[in-house]
Design a protein around this nucleic acid. Structure first.
Lengths: 109, 109
DNA sequence: TCCTCATTTCAACATCTTTTGAGATATTGA
DNA sequence: TCAATATCTCAAAAGATGTTGAAATGAGGA
C-alpha cells in the first residue's frame, strides 16, 4: 500500500453511499452480492450505484465477478486492513508495537 | 465511532497534505510537534497548514495543546485504530474473528 | 435470432472542497 | 506597553466530486 493507493481508498470511504456499500459487503462476507441487491439495499438508482461501485473497485476496496446476468461484488479484506497499517507504519519512530491496536494502547494516554 | 465520525475521518485522510500530516504526527509520537514545524516539513503556507490541521482536529484524528507561543499537534491513536474497527464490525455476519487482521486472513482467499 | 434483464456510460448541472493572500488574534520577552 | 513571533480567520477564485435521467451495452433464455 503506497500513498496514492491510500489516498484513493480514503477518498472512496469518505462518501456516505460508498461507506455503506463497503459495510454491506463486509457484512455479506466473501461471497458478496449482486450490484442490483446492493442498489436495492441502498435505495439508490442504478446509475448512482454503478458509479460508486466502480469507484470502490478502482480503489481496490471491492472486487467483482460476473455470474450469469449479475455482477457480484465483494469486499477485498486485505485492502481494508492495509489502510490502518499504512497509517500506523513507523508509529512513534518504531518504539511501540507496530500493530494498530497495540499502538493505540501503548503510545496514547 | 459512528458513521458520521467515520465519514469525517475518511474525508480528512483523503487529502494528500492531510494524510502526510497524520503520518508525520504518527511517526512523531505522543509528544507531537508544533504547527510551524509541521508546516515546514510540508513546505506549505501557514494558512494552508492551519486549514488542514483544523480539519484533522475537527475530525478527531489529531489534538492540540498550547505550549508557550506554539500550538503542539499530536495524533489521536485510538481514533485511527477505531476506523478499521468501524469498517470491519460485524464482518462476515460475525462468523470470523472481528479483529481486522484476523478477518483479512480468515475470510479472504 | 430477438427480447428481456442487469448493469454501465455519458453529459450537463449542482454542490462541495481547496488554495490564495491579506489581515486579525494571541502570547511572550524586552 | 511595545515589538516580535506563532498561528488563525476570512472571502474570493479555482478545482474536484456527486447526481440525474436517458441511452447504450452485454449476457442469457425463448
Amino acid at each position: 500500500m503506497n500513498e496514492m493507493q491510500a489516498l484513493d481508498a480514503f477518498a472512496s470511504l469518505s462518501q456516505e453511499t460508498r461507506l455503506r456499500i463497503v459495510r454491506l459487503l463486509v457484512i455479506a462476507g466473501p461471497d458478496g452480492m449482486p450490484a442490483g441487491a446492493v442498489g436495492e439495499a441502498m435505495g439508490a438508482s442504478s446509475s448512482k450505484i454503478s458509479f460508486h461501485l466502480s469507484h470502490l473497485e478502482r480503489a481496490g476496496l471491492i472486487q467483482s465477478r460476473r455470474e450469469a446476468r449479475s455482477i457480484i461484488y465483494s469486499a477485498v479484506y486485505p485492502a481494508l486492513s492495509g489502510l490502518i497499517e499504512f497509517l500506523m507504519k513507523d508509529c512513534c519512530q518504531g518504539q511501540c508495537n507496530p500493530s494498530a491496536k497495540a499502538c493505540a494502547e501503548t503510545c496514547e494516554m
